[in-house]
Structures are given as C-alpha cells and as structure tokens.
C-alpha cells in the first residue's frame, strides 16, 4: 500500500498554490508541498521529502536515517564478531 519515494526539492513552481519541483533520480515532477512547508518555500530547496501521489508527505530526517544506518552497521560488526567466534569454536572442536 502507498508507494512513496524519496525526492529532493529543486525549485519552486507556484508559491501561491504551494507547488514545488521535486527530482527523483533525474525524473522531475511538480509536487504539492503543503504538508511539509513552514515559512517561505525557498527554504525547502535542497530538502529531501517522501513523495506520494504528487504530494511531499514528510520531510526526511537526515539524522534519523544516519542513526538507522549506524545501528545496522554496528549490528553487522557484532554479527561478524559472533560468527568469527563460532567459526573459531568449530575449528577447535574439529581439532579435538
């Protein structure tokens, strides 16, 4: 349900109707920024938003994204360490 895709606001189309130009991987589309605007629309330029059916529905929180990726990275390292230990234990068993 609800296909949404991150895009970056690259221009303002119509301040009055709160329409901006968003870009997703080289594809451009006018989107409504009513849901994410607070203040003059220029401040949105460069912002990443989640786009659904022609509306920017949410601003993407860069810090939260980084935190999630960091957690994933740590988890990966911990898992590698665990696996190395398991491999070590198996090798020991094999020798015994």
């Amino acid at each position: 349900m609800c296909l949404g895709i991150p895009g970056q606001i690259v221009g303002i189309v119509d301040e009055d109707r709160q329409m901006a130009m968003a870009e997703v991987s080289g594809v451009r589309r006018e989107v409504s920024v009513v849901c994410v605007a607070d203040g003059p629309l220029e401040t949105l330029i460069g912002t990443w938003v989640l786009i659904h059916v022609g509306f920017a529905m949410s601003r993407i929180d860069e810090d939260e994204a980084a935190r999630t990726l960091e957690a994933l990275r740590e988890l990966g390292e911990a898992q590698e360490a665990l696996e190395a230990m398991a491999a070590g234990a198996a090798a020991l068993e094999g020798r015994a």
Binding site: P6, V24, A65, L69
Partner: peptide
C-alpha cells in the same frame, strides 16, 4: 538513489 540504495545493502542484509 539517496535514502534508497543505502537500505538495500546486501552485506547488511546478511548480518
């Protein structure tokens, strides 16, 4: 694609 590719990393998926 920002905020997309990072979350498709095969190595992290394995872990």
């Amino acid at each position: 694609m920002r905020y997309v590719e990072e979350f498709r990393d095969p190595q992290a998926a394995k872990s």
